[in-house]
Amino acid sequence: MKTMRSSKTRTNVFVVCCVSFLVIYCVNQYTKIKELKRNLVKTLENDEKIEETSYFMKENMSSYEVFQSYDAEEFPTVLNGPTRIPHIIHQICHSEDIYEIFQDPISSFVENNPTWEYRFWTYESGRKFLNRHYPYLISIYDAFGGNDVRKSDLLRFAVIHHYGGLYADLDVKNWRSLDIATIKYACIVPTEPFEHSAFIYKTEFILTTAVLLCRPKHPFFKQALINLQLANKDGHPVYVTGPLYFTDIYKNYNSISEDDYGRRKLDNSSNSPYFYKGTLPEDHNDAVYVPNSQYFMGDIDVNLFDSTSPQQSFKICNEPNEFALSGKDLELTYRACHEFEKRKQLRKERKFTFTSHYWYHMWTFPEAKLFNLKRIHIKTFIPSCVLYK
């Protein structure tokens, strides 16, 4: 009798422990997913914050030029023109098992572009690809180590250079067909929102690496790859392979110097941003077209609303005189606040938007924080995806 009672007690304890573990697991899973989705939710909630920061801008900043046109316009294209950028979608993850939170944005590209080829890359398959086509980059690729995001940066430049097509981060959602974006221009590289470049980087523009479209073998991406041979394996991703590195390559490629700050573009055939982009016509086969941000990169990182540093957030738009700003920094701040005000309607309506970036910043999360997130194999929901072997 005692043995039966003892056995039953152990069973009850085991059941309680299992249930407790499942409860804790579910709570952790929910908490992590909720934290990751906060950017998407806050993007929809930012309208109130936009209104809160508007008064000072309306009264004081209208005399400062915005960075680009804020009129809603369809993306420039050529009616019945030939395709210049191949219809291939490239996405990258450290393995074929992706976090379930990315399933919706990934699926959006396939659903809106059913005739496009979808290629999925991992760090392992990417290394095989590099070893075959770009062996001079294997050394630095390996030096980055583990699941380092700098591998993803290097790999995206390589696959776009080799195959052409579109690359998008996993936290980028596609809203409509990309077909018309592949006709007029040979290479398309968006900027981050100009509020980012002004508030965070204190410069006129910063190119993004989250969305890229280009023809194969473009000399701009060749230059980006060649220079990576000298990358600092211990450096910060933003500077070594990310937006700041990419922007420097763009400036060198187009012979843009510090003296060109504030200089206007030479080609006014489209609604591209106003800054100087070099001498090549926008539709030249070797040019890099920088589109108006309403198309690919119009969404602001919500951290700019919550930043603890007022000089890197929209708090500075309310009372800029409280901060020690002068010269170029002051002008950039006023222009960015004016830009923010003028683009509110565009950002709400997304009338001609191709993609939205949710700014999850997954690469900044420690692996322990991501360990329990549910994963799903890419073939489960994109069975037609091409995996490099």
Rank of each mutant, 00 (worst) to 15 (best):
N254W: 03
Y295T: 05
H357Y: 00
V302T: 14
Q29N: 06
D71S: 12
M362P: 01
P383F: 02
V302N: 06
G126H: 13
H94G: 06
V19H: 08
H90E: 12
I138A: 07
Q312W: 08
S107D: 08
A210T: 00
L332I: 01
P135Q: 10
I376M: 05
A72C: 08
N285V: 09
Y64N: 13
F199C: 05
K202R: 15
D259R: 10
S197Y: 05
F352T: 14
I188E: 02
I249M: 05
I226P: 04
F296V: 02
S307N: 08
I89F: 14
F75A: 01
K369M: 01
E341V: 14
E52K: 13
N174P: 03
T333Q: 05
Y239A: 01
Y134W: 08
A210V: 03
M57V: 12
S257W: 08
I183D: 00
Y261N: 09
I200T: 09
D260L: 12
H284W: 04
A368L: 08
I24M: 06
Q103E: 14
T364G: 03
L130A: 04
T3K: 03
T279W: 02
I92E: 00
I200E: 05
N147P: 00
D71G: 11
N113H: 11
V110Q: 00
I376Y: 03
M362V: 10
L332G: 01
V110H: 05
A143Q: 12
T353P: 01
V172R: 01
A368C: 13
T122S: 09
D248S: 05
Q312S: 13
L370F: 03
R215G: 04
I88H: 08
V27F: 09
N252R: 13
Q68E: 13
P366Q: 15
P291T: 04
Y55V: 14
Y245F: 09
L40R: 14
E331I: 14
V189E: 02
K379G: 00
N39I: 05
T353D: 02
L22Q: 11
V110A: 01
P190F: 04
